[in-house]
């Protein structure tokens, strides 16, 4: 019994990281995924702020789930989420001004992020505080990983290098050249523009679809082979039974 409940807790944490990834599988929260992934650092910053807001709102909504009347639950959730977003916004403005200016209005737009409201509606108002905390953490980490993948593709292809320390002031500013060096430069600036955001997101989604299609094909083929083998065995058994009868 003990073991079973523990695996349920683990599932609410692990599922959103890859199997039910909010961005790549459920296709939620696409606005910040396109707008804030021009660099790895901006993507990481957005992911961390998102995780904080989601965990806090999930925990508070789950704790208040028996207090909030059903008729006004959406406005109540929005006010709770907006409060945490304001906290995050003031914190970033005060301590990480470069990050604040590069994310801009998208920090405030966390209020209407479909994932935050969706988790409140679909999970936090039905589950315990612990499960909601784990669900928030899992979704936050899953979304951050997805943003980092997009951010890494766009920064490496678009600028040819990875820059550390431009958004987080406490890291010394360093450039790590990847696609350029002495006498050559393979960077394609289009990937840092809005069009590049759509291209990278589209191709990543297509790669994921291709992998899933391949997996489904392999499984189908395996099931077909098994069915064939089973039919063959049955036929052989029937034939041998028929021979014996003769």
């Amino acid at each position: 019994m003990e073991k079973k409940t523990r695996s349920v807790h683990a599932e609410s944490f692990l599922a959103p990281i890859w199997k039910a990834n909010p961005l790549f599988v459920l296709i939620l929260g696409t606005c910040p995924a396109l707008a804030t992934t021009t660099s790895i650092e901006a993507a990481l910053g957005m992911g961390l702020l998102f995780t904080f807001v989601l965990v806090c709102s999930n925990v508070l909504i789950s704790a208040l789930r028996k207090v909030i009347p059903d008729e006004v639950h959406v406005p109540a959730y929005i006010v709770i989420i907006a409060t945490f977003v304001s906290v995050v916004e003031m914190f970033t403005k005060a301590y990480l001004p470069p990050l604040y200016s590069s994310l801009g209005v998208f920090i405030s737009l966390l209020v209407v992020n479909c994932i935050v409201l969706g988790r409140a509606e679909a999970f936090a108002n039905k589950n315990t505080v612990l499960d909601s905390l784990l669900d928030g953490l899992g979704n936050g980490i899953g979304y951050t990983i997805a943003l980092l993948i997009l951010g890494a593709c766009r920064e490496i292809l678009g600028t040819g290098e990875i820059t550390f320390g431009s958004k987080f002031a406490f890291i010394p500013l360093t450039h790590l050249p990847i696609l350029k060096g002495e006498g050559f430069d393979f960077s394609m600036p289009i990937f840092t523009t809005p069009a590049g955001a759509f291209i990278v997101f589209g191709i990543v989604m297509a790669v994921i679809a291709a992998v899933n299609n391949h997996k489904a094909d392999v499984e189908k083929e395996k099931a077909r082979q098994e069915r064939l083998a089973a039919a063959k065995a049955k036929n052989a058994a029937a034939a041998s039974a028929g021979k014996e009868a003769k």
């Binding site: 296709i27 759509f198 291209i199 997101f201 589209g202 191709i203 989604m205 297509a206 790669v207 679809a209 291709a210 299609n213």
Partner: peptide, 11 residues
């Protein structure tokens, strides 16, 4: 096949 639906729309 891999581009059906959302990916081609994004492109």
């Amino acid at each position: 096949r891999a581009f059906k639906g959302l990916p081609i729309a994004l492109i």
